Simulated scan of single mutants.
Amino acid sequence: MGRRSPISVAVAAVSAALTAAVLVGCGPTGSTADKGGTSQPTTAAPSTSATTGAPAATDPSTAGSDPSATHTTAAAPAPSATTKPPVAPASVIANGSTSEKVRELQARLAQLHLFSQAVTGFYGTVTEHAVSDFQERHGLPSTGHVTQATWTKLGSLTRVPTHKELYPVVTNKPAGKLDARCMTGRAICVSKTTRTLSWVVNGKVLATMDVRFGSQYTPTREGLFHVNSKSRDHVSTIYHTAMPYAMFFSGGQAVHYSSDFAARGYAGASHGCVNVRDKAAIASLFDQVRVGDKVVVYW
């Protein structure tokens, strides 16, 4: 075979390079060829050192810029300090609690004519509003929560409550007209008209106390029932509220003491139970009533 001319050798080299370039362009899914376009691969020639012919080191941070320029790395900004919210003062007496401390709180507020309801020992919305009013009048944060500052200020303006102030006598309304079903045997007779409960044995009224009922959405059932169970320190499994001296007569409905009724009166309502606000009276009734005794709820 004769010697190939320099031109033929150059043409062959170019052809081989083009063939290699086409093979490199068959990229993975997502390339321009997969999207209906024409793949145009380009192979950038590596830069070389003028003296050694080895690839020249390239600083990525200076690529495409003036190599004579001086580059400095800016320091990362220091993280700003996290500002914590101020811690609220702890409550000396917690809202929603029942205790002798709450009873004293209510009696002291009553001395200042800020609490007009019966002293019950239950910290409800009425007590919260009275505390808030006291705080506002004396330049304290009006939160309705008893902080140490609130308790100290209240103590400096009031005296130690008397026993009568701490345990006022609850006066119940007289018994209403009894239903005929109450006149025989042993019966808890509940009148929705007069909002009273009468404990009747063989037609004789032995005790009477004020009661309230469920709202229009959770009404107290009417009719003749019987006490099916008793629970002295019951707590509702549905509403998680205390139901002391509970006497159940229809499903989850029961006659029981209500600290909320004692604190708010008829401003509130039960979830269907017959609420009693005189704790001493309901405690005595609980000891007398037997499972099987009648419960009559009527208008």
Score class of each variant (00 low, 15 high):
residue 38 T to W: 09
residue 138 H to C: 02
residue 278 D to N: 15
residue 227 V to D: 07
residue 114 L to P: 09
residue 298 Y to L: 03
residue 210 D to E: 08
residue 222 E to H: 07
residue 69 A to R: 14
residue 160 V to E: 09
residue 50 A to E: 05
residue 260 D to N: 04
residue 168 P to R: 10
residue 43 T to A: 12
residue 37 G to K: 15
residue 207 A to E: 11
residue 139 G to C: 02
residue 134 F to G: 00
residue 166 L to W: 05
residue 292 G to H: 11
residue 11 V to D: 02
residue 251 G to Y: 05
residue 218 T to L: 06
residue 257 Y to M: 03
residue 214 G to M: 07
residue 271 H to W: 00
residue 134 F to E: 00
residue 80 S to T: 09
residue 207 A to S: 13
residue 270 S to R: 07
residue 85 P to E: 08
residue 178 L to M: 13
residue 121 G to M: 06
residue 4 R to M: 09
residue 96 G to A: 05
residue 45 A to Q: 14
residue 160 V to P: 00
residue 89 P to L: 10
residue 247 M to A: 04
residue 33 A to I: 00
residue 67 P to G: 05
residue 241 T to W: 01
residue 166 L to F: 06
residue 186 R to L: 03
residue 95 N to V: 14
residue 237 T to D: 07
residue 9 V to A: 12
residue 230 K to T: 04
residue 219 P to R: 05
residue 259 S to N: 09
residue 296 V to L: 10
residue 217 Y to C: 03
residue 250 S to R: 05
residue 166 L to R: 13
residue 26 C to A: 13
residue 171 T to S: 08
residue 111 Q to H: 01
residue 68 S to G: 15
residue 44 A to N: 09
residue 13 A to W: 11
residue 102 V to D: 02
residue 271 H to I: 06
residue 149 A to L: 01
residue 70 T to R: 15
residue 280 A to S: 13
residue 152 T to M: 04
residue 161 P to C: 12
residue 213 F to L: 14
residue 147 T to W: 01
residue 205 V to C: 05
residue 91 S to M: 01
residue 155 G to V: 02
residue 49 S to F: 03
residue 119 V to C: 04
residue 115 F to V: 04
residue 145 H to F: 10
residue 29 T to V: 00
residue 250 S to Q: 09
residue 238 I to G: 01
residue 57 A to S: 10
residue 264 R to D: 00
residue 212 R to K: 14
residue 138 H to W: 06
residue 18 L to N: 11
residue 131 V to L: 05
residue 221 R to T: 14
residue 221 R to F: 11
residue 269 A to L: 04
residue 170 V to S: 03
residue 99 S to D: 01
residue 210 D to H: 10
residue 124 G to L: 04
residue 6 P to T: 13
residue 30 G to D: 00
residue 213 F to Y: 15
residue 295 V to M: 09
residue 54 A to G: 00
residue 199 W to F: 14
residue 255 V to L: 15
residue 123 Y to L: 02
residue 284 S to E: 05
residue 145 H to P: 01
residue 90 A to W: 03
residue 160 V to N: 10
residue 88 A to M: 13
residue 159 R to P: 01
residue 14 V to Q: 14
residue 38 T to N: 12
residue 118 A to M: 05
residue 135 Q to L: 10
residue 252 G to P: 01
residue 137 R to Q: 14
residue 44 A to G: 06
residue 91 S to T: 12
residue 127 T to K: 10
residue 100 E to A: 15
residue 53 G to L: 03
residue 93 I to D: 07
residue 162 T to Q: 09
residue 218 T to D: 08
residue 38 T to C: 10
residue 149 A to K: 11
residue 68 S to W: 08
residue 85 P to D: 08
residue 26 C to W: 00
residue 246 A to G: 01
residue 42 T to V: 15
residue 220 T to N: 02
residue 104 E to D: 13
